[in-house]
Design a binder for these strands. Structure first.
Lengths: 158, 158
DNA sequence: CCGTGGAAGTTGAATATCGAATTAAGTCAT
DNA sequence: ATGACTTAATTCGATATTCAACTTCCACGG
């Protein structure tokens, strides 16, 4: 941990950039959540559907899915139980490793995905993507990528 | 709500920018939370301390504090109860409007703030601010500001 | 083989969050 | 002043999240 004495306070410019990033990420999540609500899905539900629907055989190991969606195994386990009760996914055991389980997208889950995705994309466009000039979006991605890498590198560390 | 037929899918560039933003905001929150943990504070605790410590008389009306921290009154109410139990804030009734309450920073809350802030700033620098070239940070702020405004504009709306 | 350590996943209890209902008090038109 | 609306804040029940404990299985050194 950095000692306090050599850490300069944030400048005004830095403060504003920081607060803005914070506000955008929170407000955006709220908005997307609200836009999904009519379809009976949460952001977390949706993200899991995306990951499964893009995966080989529409299935992923619990651990991999947890890593992909950046949540704890425990949380994912509860989440999958809920989605299983809702008929969107099912658990299937893994032959090669008898400890393992796959979360598998059901047909209903797939249909839900196909039905909801266009609305969600529209929502992401309306509230985020379309509000940038395309070169700004690219600049955003470029400058954010090292941050993501830095943070991924210290997941689960000290 | 936009109809699906006229909403183009996200391009690769857009997808990547979007996923990166998503990942950064989640990973960052996790990391900051972890860095605050040794001090017994959550991000939410900290943000409330910041808001109160910057406010006139180190106090804010519950509603204003809820608005400033982008959370529901219900959530804030619970949150303040916890922080009250922890001795960081207290509730004080408002003379001019007998329905109203102030959340007031206690001396202990103020001391906690002064003690923790440098570490938190260091954390924000290490995991976010210092990872940008300063012109990139300014570009980030500039391009994110309209998004924040757009989203603030539709808080609590349809 | 055996046993020790680690990984995959679940469970349960404690805690936090959400949304609707509730209480109490201000506002305002008549 | 009275009744109808609105606003401030809390409470309650339903859901979600966290954290630690636990079970089951794999890997591998002796």
């Amino acid at each position: 941990m950095t000692t306090d004495s050599d850490t300069p306070w944030l400048t005004d410019q830095e403060q504003r950039a920081w607060r803005t990033h914070l506000d955008v990420s929170r407000l955006l999540m709220h908005q997307l959540e609200r836009d999904l609500q009519p379809f009976g899905l949460t952001n977390n539900d949706y993200e899991i559907l995306v990951n499964l629907s893009e995966a080989e055989d529409r299935r992923l190991r619990m651990s991999d899915l947890a890593a992909a969606t950046l949540q704890s195994k425990s949380r994912l386990s509860h989440q999958i139980t809920r989605m299983e009760n809702a008929g969107l996914v099912r658990r299937e055991s893994c032959e090669s490793d008898r400890r393992g389980l796959y979360a598998v997208l059901t047909d209903e889950g797939w249909d839900t995905m196909r039905r909801v995705a266009p609305h969600h994309v529209a929502s992401v466009r309306r509230h985020f993507i379309d509000l940038f000039a395309s070169e700004d979006l690219e600049a955003l991605r470029t400058s954010l990528t090292p941050v993501a890498e830095h943070l991924r590198g210290r997941r689960g560390k000290v």
